[in-house]
Amino acid sequence: MIDRRSFAKLSVWLVLLLVFDLTDILSIDRNAEFFRSSGYDAVDMFNHMEFGFSNFDTILIETVFFQTAFIMLFPLFAGQDISSELTVSATYYFTRRASRSKWYLKRVLMLFIKCMLVSFVACFINYLMTMKISENVQITPILCEYSIFCLYCFILTLAANIAAIFTGSIISVVISSVFHIMSILLLKSSTIFGRYNLLGNCVITLSSTANEFVIKLSIELSVAVIITVVGLLIIKNKELGLVNADQII
């Protein structure tokens, strides 16, 4: 089923994202100057724009926080898509066809597509910015960045949906935001623990970080699969129409 409403919301979201990143594009020269004077290259800047900044000055954490702030907002748009569909019409759906797994997996796939779109736009903007700094931008690190970013977005939003199935409320968005802030803090801690942070710094240079990228991608893939399976088990076993003991009859 094509959920036009959620795709319409996504369109609004992408426009907001473009506006949000417009500030970066406008300040590209200032940013570029900073990176050049600090001795970093174009790929470094690209990494910095998303997650990887572990080797940079901690003053940039605030910048990165704003750069990635839209991820916090993404669950606001898509964090209740699956849960609201479940509460709205799943009764009529599941009394016609029992395959809850198929219903759930189809919606997870839709969510993933949305995350791909959002991530693509974000990464494409940064790609354009990076091009401004250096003409020799390699596509591989950008694809790596994109995959990491996309999976992160997916994990966050799916987790928000699963939380919303339990709570039936906007609290899932708050939880997602907390997750995101925790991620930012992890990034900050990476300046203490070195290069091996959880999310970022995966493609600073191709030769030195290929293994690191594979490790991060594997971790994110595993987390994504675990969350998907947990969601599947919840959907399969959920007793529909029951929210809590006070509302059951």
Partner: peptide, 14 residues
Amino acid sequence: SGKTMLFRALCGLI
């Protein structure tokens, strides 16, 4: 009184 729950049971939703 349990009417809706009985119907949910008959539908296989619980």
